[in-house]
Each structure stands twice: as structure tokens, then as C-alpha cells.
């Protein structure tokens, strides 16, 4: 048994090294901007750059709208499928997985052809329309994560009985979704939301091809023209992603305990 434990630690050590050494190397490199000493100059330059602030804010706002759109589409859809159309679940699961299979570039070229300035729905003829289209595209990209997170949340509660209990007490569909279902899957929705946030913050293809001033294209631009700043940006992006993951963990502790199933 002891030798089994030893090898387990060896494998763990190799995995940790594989993951952390490039990260540590990037971090170390990002601190070499000032010749001869380690400093946070690269971070100061990046964080002080007005384009960083503008593109980051743009992506944050796009992420918030993407999350709202995703929740509005996914929560009622996943709820209805669990409640009334369970036979459609495999089909819907397949559809939600498509964004993982179809490259973003294919989706965005489809958008450009469908919603160009000469189309009946000319999203791309205005900045606001293009941004709206970007949010719609992001919601599509985040669909596999959001749907799975919400569906897993719904699996932990007895959707049908809770719905019937609320109905018999006089509640309509809006009350049932907002006061019964959503609060009980809130942590799952937040997990989906943070995953969506992480995807949107770093997304390049759609933002670039739709010519939007997002954080992804800014990252690419900096990476192509500077030495130390891209490394600092990579570390910042990691910190944001990890921050999101930590928030999921923290918030999941406040999840309502499911006591609606006997024993």
C-alpha cells in the first residue's frame, strides 16, 4: 500500500509541475521589465493603459448581458424539459453541445452573412446591433456550460412536486419560476454564469471578426507587439478565472439544502 501511495504522490507532483511551472515562468518573466530587478512594472503599464480599461469594461458588460440572456433562455427551457418534455432531453443536450463542435469562426461567418447591412435583420449596420449580435453569439458559445450547470441544479430538486405544490397554493408560472425554481438552482445558475464570464472575457474570434472593442482582441494585439505585458495579462486573466472559480465554491456553501425528498 505504501508504494502505491508513493507513486500517487509522484504522479500528483508531475501533474502539479506540468501545470505550475509554465505559470510560474510566465509570472517570473512578467516581472523582468525593469532590467536587473523583479518589478510589477508590466502590470502597472497594463492596468494603466486606457485601452485595457475600456476593452475590459466592454467585455465585462458583454459578459453580464450574455449571462442575463443565457439565464432567460436556459432556465425556463431546462425547467420545462424536466417538467413536461423529458423525452426531448437527449435532443436538447445534443443541440447545446453543438457550440463545442462547431468552431466559433463558422458561427460568426454565418452571422455576418445573415445579419449584414443588406439583410432583413441588419444587426451589423450599427455598433449597438453588432454588440447585441456579439452577446447573442457569446450566449451560444456558453450554452453547453450554462445548460449543463442549470440541468444539474434541477436534478437536485424534485421539480415536478415543487411545481405542483406551488400551483396548488395558487401560484402562476412566473411565481413558480422566480420564487421556487430559480432560488433553488441559483448556485447552479451562478456556476454557469461564472463559466460564461470566463469564456466571454478571453474570447477573441467573434469579437475580432465582428470588430468589437473587446478584451480578447486587445490581449491578442498586446501579445503581438509587446514583450512583458502579454505575460502580465496572461497572469491577470488567470487570476480573474480563478477568482470566478473560487466564487462558485464560496457561493455553493450557501445553497439551500434540498430537503424535499424523503430520506
Amino acid at each position: 500500500m505504501k508504494s502505491g501511495k508513493f507513486w500517487a504522490w509522484v504522479v500528483f507532483g508531475i501533474g502539479t509541475a506540468y501545470f505550475f511551472i509554465p505559470l510560474l515562468a510566465t509570472f517570473e518573466f512578467s516581472m523582468r521589465m525593469r532590467r536587473g530587478v523583479h518589478s510589477f512594472d508590466a502590470y502597472q503599464v497594463v492596468l494603466g493603459d486606457p485601452r485595457f480599461q475600456a476593452t475590459f469594461m466592454y467585455s465585462v458588460i458583454a459578459a453580464i448581458f450574455t449571462i442575463i440572456l443565457g439565464v432567460l433562455i436556459v432556465v425556463p427551457a431546462a425547467y420545462w424539459i424536466r417538467l413536461r418534455l423529458p423525452q426531448l432531453r437527449p435532443i436538447v443536450e445534443f443541440i447545446t453541445l453543438l457550440p463545442l463542435v462547431i468552431p466559433a469562426i463558422v458561427i460568426v461567418f454565418g452571422y455576418i452573412r445573415m445579419y449584414g447591412s443588406n439583410s432583413p435583420l441588419p444587426f451589423l449596420s450599427s455598433d449597438l446591433g453588432a454588440s447585441a449580435l456579439l452577446v447573442i453569439g457569446y450566449a451560444t458559445l456558453a450554452l453547453p456550460y450554462m445548460y449543463r450547470a442549470v440541468d444539474t441544479g434541477l436534478r437536485t430538486i424534485d421539480v415536478r412536486t415543487l411545481t405542483e405544490a406551488a400551483q396548488i397554493l395558487g401560484a402562476g408560472w412566473t411565481t413558480i419560476i422566480t420564487r421556487v425554481i430559480l432560488p433553488n438552482v441559483l448556485i447552479a445558475v451562478l456556476s454557469g454564469a461564472f463559466l460564461t464570464f470566463a469564456i466571454v472575457i478571453g474570447e477573441f474570434t467573434m469579437a475580432s471578426l465582428l470588430n468589437r472593442p473587446a478584451f480578447g482582441p486587445y490581449l491578442q494585439n498586446i501579445g503581438a507587439n509587446r514583450a512583458y505585458e502579454p505575460a502580465a495579462l496572461a497572469i491577470i486573466a488567470f487570476a480573474i478565472t480563478w477568482g470566478c472559480m473560487s466564487l462558485i465554491q464560496i457561493l455553493s456553501r450557501f445553497a439551500p439544502k434540498s430537503a424535499n425528498r424523503p430520506n
Binding site: I157, A165, Q167, A259, N260
Partner: peptide, 19 residues
Amino acid sequence: KPNQRNVGMVFQAYALFPN
């Protein structure tokens, strides 16, 4: 509809709202 009937119901699985 069930919400228009003014009927009370108790379920086998309790069905209390966990939140």
C-alpha cells in the same frame, strides 16, 4: 387550473420549498 381551484394538498414527498 390547479391554481384556480382553492384546494389544499399534502404530498408524499413533503414538497416543502427548500429555500
